[in-house]
Structures are given as structure tokens and as C-alpha cells.
């Protein structure tokens, strides 16, 4: 890991109180990773993997039970709301739902200008100028500012959401399933826009998604989560193209590719994992119950994240490159 990454998530643990008699659900369990300036880290996992919770914890929308989140060297783990106002100038978010993330009764201009007006307190003329520029940057028509979100399609709304995030000129943007709700052709438009903005502004992204194809396309580093724990972490060409962890392998092999013969071959070669059996024991590897290669130790002892062939993987079946363990 680099000495001073822009974002440093260290041993993050987030718990939710379950409704009713109040058991605790550990949504995120000891997750660590870093994001350098201008870098894109893909956070992949299925439902319940805790990927969105990690984003929320960085944004201050979820309160970590343990661990530490650093941004540009400063500890923001339990950052109070007042300081969040300053942080909002550097960390922004694009949510999945392009229909729910904008107040339908405000115009696009009002939505995009909100942070400038109420957080930075800029004068009106300057706000107008920056809103016009931001909407132009994301490829929206000039008159978009005076119109309402309902008049736009899903892809256009996602552009509005991007404009709202970028108008603060942040260094770091969390994209929480930002393109998952979009059709292929529109998804490609938005992905291209995100890549272009990344190049122009040196943005760092945390790209949270369940779609391995998207993450493979856009990320430099990938973190694979299962049941709140990191299974595998490393450079995209290794993790996405030559995964070592059984779960990452299962995930990669499960996604069908748009070519019948290739898909038939993949299908035949696929390692079958057992169907998800709900929550597993607290002690061992969370994937043990579904893992085709699980051994006795997998059910009793949680594997540490260790270096293995250029990546970090948490699996008892892999012999680590060295004895060094990573938190």
C-alpha cells in the first residue's frame, strides 16, 4: 500500500441493529483498502456484501463500530456534521437510482446549485455561471437548468447527478451502482462520461457495483466483498481476469458473456457453488458453506488476507507468498 493514499479505509466495521429484539448485524467486517489520487477502485459484491455500507460510512451516512477512515491524512471516521460541510467540498456521491436522488419539486438548476448556494454560499451570478458550466460538462442541453427532473430520461438524470457531484470540484467521487439502472447504450454513455471527467480532473472514484463487467472496464484496483469481508483485492487485470479466490472465481464464471460458444464453454467449466444458505457461522470463512473446495479449517478459522501471486486473498486453500498478513 502506498504511504499516503487519498482515502484509507482501515479495518472498517459497521453494525446495524436488527429490527425487533435488537440483534446486531455486522454488515461490514474488518475491511481495509486504499484509494490513491486519480485512481478508481471497484468494490464488487452481491446483495448483502456490505459494499454500499462502506460507501455510506465514508460519506458519514453510516456510523462505523470499529476501524478508521482517513481522507487526505485526516481521520474522518466519526466526523461531525459541521465538519462534513467542509468535507463535502472534496467527497461527493452519485447514487444508483436516477429517479429518487433528485427532489422532484426542484428544478435541475436548483438541485445542481444546492451545494454552492447553501454550503459554499456563493453569490447568485457565480452560481449561475458554474451551473451552466457543470451542465455543459456532462452534455446536457442549455435549458436543462430551468426544467424538472421528471422531464429527463434515466441516463440524463444520471448526468444531472454527476453534474451535482462535480460542481463542488471534488477530488473523490463515490459511485454507488451509478450505472446499474441504465440500459446498455445509455450505460456506455455514462461510463464514457465518467472516464472522461476522471481524465480531465484527476478524480478518484470508488465504484460500487455488482456488475463485474463494469468494474473490470473502469477500475484500476478491485476489492471483492462477501458477507462484509474482503475476499480478494488487487489490480484489475489480476483480480478480474485471473481471480484466485474461489468466490471471485465463482462470481466471474457466473456472469454470462454475450457469445454462445464461449458461454457454453464457460458454462461447462464453471465450478458450481452451493446455493446461498443465508447467514453462516461467525467463526470461519463466510464463503465456506458454499465453497466447492472448503476444508475443515474453513469452517472454524477466519482466513487472513495474505499476499498471493500479486494480489491479496483471504483463503485457506491458497499458500501465501509470504507469512506477512495484511489487516
Amino acid at each position: 500500500m502506498v504511504a499516503n493514499p487519498l482515502v484509507n479505509v482501515n479495518n472498517l466495521t459497521v453494525e446495524y441493529r436488527l429490527p425487533g429484539r435488537g440483534g446486531l448485524l455486522r454488515a461490514v467486517d474488518g475491511v481495509s483498502f486504499g484509494i490513491e489520487r486519480g485512481q478508481t477502485v471497484g468494490l464488487v459484491g452481491e446483495s448483502g456484501s456490505g459494499k454500499s455500507t462502506i460507501g455510506n460510512a465514508i460519506l458519514g451516512l453510516a456510523d462505523p463500530a470499529d476501524g478508521r477512515i482517513e481522507f487526505d491524512g485526516a481521520d474522518i471516521t466519526h466526523c461531525p456534521r459541521a465538519d462534513r460541510r467542509l468535507l463535502a467540498r472534496r467527497i461527493q456521491v452519485i447514487f444508483q437510482d436516477p429517479f429518487g436522488s433528485m427532489n422532484p419539486s426542484l428544478t435541475v438548476g436548483e438541485t445542481v446549485a444546492e451545494a454552492l448556494r447553501y454550503n459554499l454560499g456563493l453569490p447568485k451570478a457565480q452560481i449561475r455561471e458554474r451551473v451552466t458550466q457543470a451542465l455543459a460538462d456532462v452534455g446536457l442541453p442549455l435549458d436543462a437548468a430551468e426544467r424538472y427532473p421528471t422531464e429527463f430520461s434515466g441516463g440524463q438524470r444520471q448526468r444531472i447527478a454527476i453534474a451535482r457531484a462535480l460542481i463542488m470540484d471534488p477530488d473523490f467521487v463515490i459511485c454507488d451502482e451509478a450505472v446499474s439502472a441504465l440500459d446498455l447504450s445509455v450505460q456506455a454513455q455514462v461510463l464514457n462520461l465518467l472516464v472522461k471527467l476522471r481524465q480531465e480532473r484527476g478524480l478518484a472514484y470508488l465504484f460500487i457495483t455488482h456488475d463485474l463487467a463494469v468494474v473490470r472496464y473502469i477500475s484500476d484496483q478491485i476489492v471483492v466483498l462477501y458477507a462484509g469481508q474482503v475476499m480478494e483485492r488487487g489490480p484489475v487485470d489480476l483480480v478480474a481476469d485471473r481471480p484466485v479466490h474461489p468466490y471471485t472465481q465463482a462470481l466471474t464464471e457466473a456472469a454470462p458473456v454475450p457469445d454462445p460458444e464461449l458461454q457454453a464453454a464457460r458454462q461447462a467449466a464453471r465450478t458450481k457453488v452451493a446455493p446461498s444458505a443465508g447467514s453462516t457461522g461467525q467463526t470461519g470463512c463466510p464463503f465456506a458453506a458454499r465453497c466447492p473446495g472448503a476444508i475443515g479449517r474453513c469452517h472454524t478459522e477466519r482466513p487472513a488476507l495474505v499476499p498471493y501471486q500479486g494480489v491479496l486473498a483471504a483463503c485457506h486453500l491458497l499458500t501465501p507468498d509470504s507469512k506477512e498478513t495484511i489487516p
Partner: peptide, 11 residues
Amino acid sequence: LFVRAAITSGL
């Protein structure tokens, strides 16, 4: 979601 977005905008 738009309220969450407003919170993350530092309002």
C-alpha cells in the same frame, strides 16, 4: 435518496 444527497452535499 435526495435527502441523503443533500446531506452529502454538506447542507
